[in-house]
């Protein structure tokens, strides 16, 4: 994404439109398995409209040289940290059924803390931050599971 910064020729928009067309076709194909007209009329109409809009967008992008569209300024933004955040969250939710909510929550919290850390790890922070993390996770865990009675996953490994 770093490539298109300024005066991009909305290539990304065109590619996205193509992806959306493919998605709409997939949706149209899926509607053939529906028997009730109540079920397929609406999604078919929407998928068709989507294809039309996408084709229009692609055509528009070809015909008109797009004006400068300022994307969110990337600057010195760190992609590894972004990927790390998403990976930590996704990873934690995927292993949750096995290791349980609390443990995966601690791990995700710790990992994301590392990705979000820009200040130097001074001696004080080394202690305060993890302790704060522990307290927050435990606090929310207690609020949800004990007060609000949400059945949070226990984890198959710890039954």
């Amino acid at each position: 994404m770093q490539v298109e910064s300024k005066s991009r020729s909305d290539l990304a928009g065109t590619v996205t439109a193509v992806v959306f067309i493919l998605m709409a076709c997939l949706a149209l194909w899926d509607t053939t398995s529906m028997t009730d007209s109540d079920s397929y009329v609406f999604p078919r109409a929407i998928a068709a409209a989507m294809i039309v809009f996408c084709i229009l967008l692609i055509a528009y992008n070809f015909i008109k040289r797009p004006a400068d569209e300022a994307a969110g300024g990337t600057g010195s933004a760190s992609t590894p940290r972004r990927v790390g955040l998403v990976a930590a969250m996704l990873g934690a939710s995927l292993v949750m059924p096995w290791v349980g909510f609390l443990l995966s929550g601690f791990c995700a919290f710790g990992a994301i803390m590392l990705f979000a850390m820009y200040d130097p790890w001074t001696g004080r922070r080394r202690i305060v931050f993890p302790v704060a993390g522990l307290a927050i996770v435990l606090g929310f865990y207690t609020l949800f599971s004990k007060v609000l009675l949400v059945p949070l996953p226990v984890g198959v490994w710890f039954r």
Binding site: L85, A108, G110, I112, M113, F115, A116, M117, I136
Partner: peptide, 8 residues
């Protein structure tokens, strides 16, 4: 470093 993991 606390805000982001907390919100996440």
């Amino acid at each position: 470093a606390i805000l982001v993991p907390t919100v996440a």
